[in-house]
Write a protein that binds this DNA or RNA. Sequence first.
DNA 1: TTGTAGGCGTTATCAG
DNA 2: CTGATAACGCCTACAA
Lengths: 341, 341
Amino acid sequence: MRKKITKRKITLLDVAKAADVSAITVSRALRHPASVSAKLRERIQHVVDDLGYVPDPAASALASARTNVVGVLIPSITNNVFAGVLRGIYMEAEKAGYGIQLGNTRYSMLEEERLLRVFLSQRPAGLIVTGIDQSSAARTQLLRADCPVVQIMEIGDKPIDMMVGFSHRDGASTATQHLVDCGYTRIAFLGARMDPRTQRRLEGFSQCLKQAGLFDQRLVVTTPKASTVTLGCELLSELLARAPDADAVFCNNDDLALGVLFECQRRQITVPTDMGICGFNDLEMMAVANPAITSVRTFREEMGREAMGSLLASIAGTVVEQPVIDLGYELIKRQSTRSVK
Amino acid sequence: MRKKITKRKITLLDVAKAADVSAITVSRALRHPASVSAKLRERIQHVVDDLGYVPDPAASALASARTNVVGVLIPSITNNVFAGVLRGIYMEAEKAGYGIQLGNTRYSMLEEERLLRVFLSQRPAGLIVTGIDQSSAARTQLLRADCPVVQIMEIGDKPIDMMVGFSHRDGASTATQHLVDCGYTRIAFLGARMDPRTQRRLEGFSQCLKQAGLFDQRLVVTTPKASTVTLGCELLSELLARAPDADAVFCNNDDLALGVLFECQRRQITVPTDMGICGFNDLEMMAVANPAITSVRTFREEMGREAMGSLLASIAGTVVEQPVIDLGYELIKRQSTRSVK
DNA sequence: TTGTAGGCGTTATCAG
DNA sequence: CTGATAACGCCTACAA
C-alpha cells in the first residue's frame, strides 16, 4: 500500500522568494550563519520554519560533491563486541549531525572490497573500517579515497590514515602470562572464527607459552565457526578428549569462556582449582558468573567514540596530531583463575 | 591527513561518447538491460568496465526523486535482540542491492520523530520502524511518507502500512501459564527498561495470573534501567527482600534470566525446585546454562527478513497480500522450570 | 529500440 | 555581505 504525494516540495527558491532574497543567501544563512547579516538571518530562519523547508541532501551532495554520511564497515552485526563500538560511533555522529551508513562485510575481504566501492561512490564524508587486513585492492581504494579513513579495533604499522585500537597480541600475551603465574601448566587456547584479530591473539598466546616452555600444539583448539556460548561447550569437550590433562583455557572471547564454564559445571570440573578460565573483552556478564570469570577488558565504546572523533576532526580540516591511538586493555582477574602464587 | 583527487570523474556521458550512443541509452542499459538491444548492451557494458564508470547516486536521487536506501529505526544497538533482526534485514537488503541507513532512537519517541524527519528528507525507498507506539507526529509523518513502511517486533491494529511481529502479551501469557502449570504459586515478574513491548509482556503476565487467582503486585519488580545480566542479579535480590517466598520468576528477557540463575547459584537456591526461571527471546546461551533455562523463543532474524522482503515487494509495486505477518513465538521448556504436573 | 530536451535542488564561482 | 549564472550527473518525459 503506497501513498502518493501531490504537493510540490518546498525548495530553497521558495524560501528565497518569501524572504525576498536570493537562493544562495538562504543557503548560506543555513550553512554558515555567520556569513549573513543578523537581520537577514533572522528573517530567513523565520520563513524556513514557517514554510517547513527541509534541505534536499541529494541536491546538496550533487552540487557540493560531499555528504554528511560516514560509512562504517564491520565484519559482523551479531557480534556483541561491535555493538559496543557502534554505540560509541553513533553517540559522536549524532552530536555532529552526521548519518551512518553501516556495511556488514561478514568477515570477507571481497565483500569488504565490494562495499567499499559502493560506499565510495556515495562520496562519504569519512570512512571507518575494521582491522588492518584489507585486501590490497581495498587498501588502494582507501588510500585514493577523497575522505579521511579510520581503521579500528587494532593498531599496526602503515596506517592508511588514522587508527584507533589496541594490540590483540599483547592482550592475549598478558592474559596467558597470568595463567602461567597462577601456576597452571597445561594451558589451552580455544578459538572460534579465526579472523585476523583472533589469529593475533593466538600468536600472543603461543609466544608467551613458548617463552615459559609450556607450549603444546595439541592444546590449541580452533574452528572457523562463529563463536557462541554453545561452541565454548563443544570446544572444551574437544579439548578434553584430546588432552584430558589440560588445566586452564584462554578463550578467544567471552562467549566461549562462558560456555567453558557451563561445560565444566556439567562435568563436575572445579573452577578454578582443576580448570582455570580466562576470556577476552570482559562483557558485562563475566563479573556475575559463578565463579566470576577472569577476562581482558577492552574499551569498545571508547574506541567508537575516539574513531568518530578523529574522523570528524579530520573532516573539519583539523590536523590530527595523533593518527594512531592505542586504547590498550586491562586484565581483570576474577575467581575463574587461581590466585597468583 | 586528507588526500585530494584531481582527475575528473567519469560520467554517463563519457561512457556514452566512448560507446557512441546517447547518455540515456547507457542509463537504460544499466538499469533495465532488457530495454536495450543485446548488441548495444554488450558494447556499453564493455566500455563501462573499461572506463571504470560508477554511477553517482546523488545525481540519480536528485533526478529520479528516489534512492535505493532503506531507513531502519531501532531503539538500541547494543540490545542483542535487534542484532538478530538487523541480520535478517541486511541479508535481504544485500541480495536486492539496497543500502541500509540505521538510526538509533534510544527508546525515545522524540528522537524517533527527529530521525524520521532526517530520513524522510533523504527520500528513502522504504522505512522499517520498531514497534507500534510512534508519537502521533511520527505516525502522521509515516502515513504521509512517499514510501512503504514496515513496523516490526509487534503486531497490532491500525498498521501504518505493513507489520511483521508477534504478540508480546500472548508470549508472556503462555510463559506465565507454564509456570502455573508447573505448580509454582508465588510467581514474580522481573522487568527492565519497561519499553512498550515489555509493558505488554507484563500485561500478559498479570492477566494470566489474575485468571489463576495468583496475582500479587508485590511480586512485580521493574526498573527503567537497561537490562543486563547484572541487573538480573539485582532484581532477584530486590524481589527476595520484598517477598522471600517467591518461587518462580518470569523475566522480561534472557539477560535478566541468566542473572537470576547466577544469583540463585550464589544464594544456594535450587533451580527449578525452589525457584523456577523463565526468560524471553531464547538467546542461544539459554540452552547450555546449568540448568538450561526455559524461554520463549522469538524469530528475530526471520522477522528482519520478512520485513525487508515485504518492503522490497511493496517497493517493486507488488501488491502485498498480507500486510500484517504474525511470526508467533514458541515456549521452549527446559530444566529451569519444574516438569508440568 | 533509441534519442532530444529540460529540469531535479543545491552550491561554487565570480561580480558587485 | 549579497546576487546572477552556471554547473553537478542523471532521469523523466516525449518524440522519432
